[in-house]
Design a protein around this nucleic acid. Structure first.
Lengths: 233, 233
DNA sequence: CGGTCTATTGACCACTCTCAAAACTCGTGG
DNA sequence: CCACGAGTTTTGAGAGTGGTCAATAGACCG
């Protein structure tokens, strides 16, 4: 019996250690494991699109997912990246609205899907889980408010410095000290709400001031202190 | 026995008809009524400030509250206005963090305060209330995401047109068809993330094109269709 | 009626965007 | 293993949006 792709068991899932479902008891975990279905996706695969109805919650076993909103003239506004243990799509099913964002695979991923009804069963059974989800939503809300303020008040240069530090903090660096998460210049631009060319110009400005090293598509942060100063942190 | 200010009873509160607590049963409402304390505030009164710990939830009986974040160099970024029946401060107590926004009275208000412990008691007793709060958070999250995208991608003109339509929709018009909510130019600017002067210039541009009428501080929308077109809606 | 806050207008210019062209990167197939 | 082509990055030039500063006018409050 050889399977090309073996469904992961929730109790072995990396995400369960520190992800959303970390506080489930063994029974609940078993329930979750029985109800979920898992698929593997390649970079670029679309999980859902804006205005589409979703009937379940996604939970990332491995890989990275990009969540974004399509603005005027089709430009993406990246809201966040999600990784192992993160859940998404819950906003939509909680208030019964179509999705207000799109989700696309950014790094090849294996992602589980939990039908709403089963998710709601868990929520009702385990009040702490509901509270946890509430906390998650509240945390995201706090981040969103900060994002709004930054967007409204900071210059592109400040936002770029800030996002670079954030990406290092959040996704770490590889063995060459390069930022692990690999974004195109366009994606960086779509994250901070500017034009691709502006990102490029500012990156080379940072480089010429000795704050960064750029090697092909990779970025290494050399001078965190100065970037922090620029970002107003 | 004459009280200058009589505590409102929750069951008579306007907010209970369609506000957050609309689905409480009589017992729970009575519990809420016993635990809450109510005060009246004048315009400008500060309910809490960023980084301050909050130990309860606020619920608006009457009046309007302005929620904002202080950005670089003290400039306010207005996140939202809240009115009768709305609750706020829950984000902070849910994840045990200090407030990430400030809240100030915008129109003289009477506002109730529910200590966290009692609020949590209600949440645990009534699972639907937890779900409701979750939905509220999710709705706000959706709005925040839209706000981010607008801020990142729309011009000041587009955002101004959009917010004017939103204010009419959300707060209505008075007997002269003027926008009911009374904002200074600076507040309008802080809402859409721009400079006061830019708002003024664009308002008079809209006026000269016949989209608006400006009378002292008041704004009347004359041509909704064209504003919608400008706002890209 | 004076004082304070808010609104308006003008001048100036910095930051960013757009458009266009050239260089580079990387995967694919010959 | 190299060449090709698509996609990405870089650079430059030019233009426009929107911000800052400053001065004036108007509104509002006691």
């Amino acid at each position: 019996m050889s399977n090309y792709f073996q469904d992961p068991n929730c109790k072995d899932c990396l995400g369960v250690e520190k992800g959303f479902f970390k506080n489930l008891n063994p029974d609940e975990l078993e329930f979750l494991n029985n109800k979920k279905s898992c698929s593997s996706y390649q970079k670029g695969a679309v999980l859902y699109r804006e205005n589409q109805r979703i009937n379940g919650v996604f939970c990332i076993n491995s890989g990275v997912v990009k969540v974004f909103k399509t603005g005027v003239s089709g430009k993406e506004q990246i809201i966040k990246f999600l990784k192992s243990g993160d859940i998404f799509g819950y906003r939509s099913i909680m208030n019964g609205e179509p999705a207000c964002t799109s989700a696309k695979v950014h790094i090849d991923a294996s992602i589980c899907y939990i039908p709403s009804s089963d998710f709601f069963t868990l929520l009702r059974k385990n009040n702490d889980l509901a509270i946890e989800l509430l906390q998650l939503a509240c945390t995201e809300l706090g981040e969103a408010n900060k994002f709004i303020t930054d967007m409204a008040q900071k210059t592109v240069k400040e936002r770029l410095a800030e996002i670079l530090l954030f990406l290092k903090e959040e996704y770490g660096i590889d063995d060459e000290e390069m930022l692990s998460i690999n974004l195109t210049r366009e994606e960086l631009a779509n994250l901070i709400g500017t034009a691709t060319e502006s990102v490029i110009r500012l990156l080379s400005e940072f480089k010429s001031e000795g704050f960064l090293e750029l090697k092909a598509r990779k970025i290494r942060i050399l001078d965190e202190a100065n970037l922090k100063k620029i970002a107003n942190l």
